[in-house]
């Protein structure tokens, strides 16, 4: 049990530090094409064990987002987006629930659930996160095109980068 907590704690710490230490300093704009961003730290929330109390997930998400916001100099934007992603996590899990149900002690990782399930899960949840994040960043429905483009071109490379990390540090729980 304590190893699950420790593992999740280390995973969260590692992802957040990777985000604020390295990814937040990268300039990924390709000329005038500024839609590409890399955001991997929200996957820590998505990988919390399935039986984690929902309220705890919300609080974790909020404060992690707030912490990242200090480095992005955008108070509230990451926190709000993380909160929304965490709020919709149970719904995504419910939609994707396999016939035999979850083994609730474990995290919804690739090793546990298989590649296909895992890809659909993180695609849905990270789309929710990105859409919320860029919506709060633009703060107006006028920029819906930009919000959409940003979301799409952030999800694809972010998932790719996260999969690499996930392979490198893969675990059974």
């Amino acid at each position: 049990m304590s190893s699950i907590i420790l593992r999740n704690f280390l995973r969260g710490l590692g992802l957040v530090l990777f985000q604020v230490g390295i990814l937040s300093r990268l300039d990924l704009s390709l000329g005038s094409f500024t839609f590409v961003h890399l955001i991997v730290y929200p996957f820590f929330i998505l990988l919390l064990p399935i039986n984690t109390p929902k309220a705890v997930v919300l609080l974790f998400a909020f404060f992690t987002g707030l912490f990242v916001d200090f480095f992005y100099n955008s108070p509230g934007v990451h926190a709000g987006a993380m909160l929304i992603a965490a709020y919709f996590r149970p719904f995504a899990l419910k939609v994707l629930e396999p016939n035999e149900g979850y083994s609730t002690k474990f995290s919804p990782t690739m090793v546990q659930m298989g590649f296909n399930w895992f890809i659909s899960y993180i695609s849905i949840t990270s789309f929710i996160f990105c859409f919320a994040y860029f919506s709060l960043d633009a703060f107006s429905a006028v920029y819906i095109f930009r919000i959409f483009m940003n979301s799409v071109f952030t999800i694809i490379p972010s998932i790719f980068v996260f999969m690499i990390i996930h392979f490198l540090f893969r675990s059974k729980v």
């Binding site: 707030l66 955008s74 108070p75 509230g76 934007v77 926190a79 709000g80 909160l83 709060l136 703060f139």
Partner: peptide, 14 residues
């Protein structure tokens, strides 16, 4: 409550 907090943070400091 937390969503309200983050939106008020966004509006106040951005």
């Amino acid at each position: 409550v937390l969503l309200g907090t983050s939106i008020s943070l966004i509006v106040r400091y951005n």
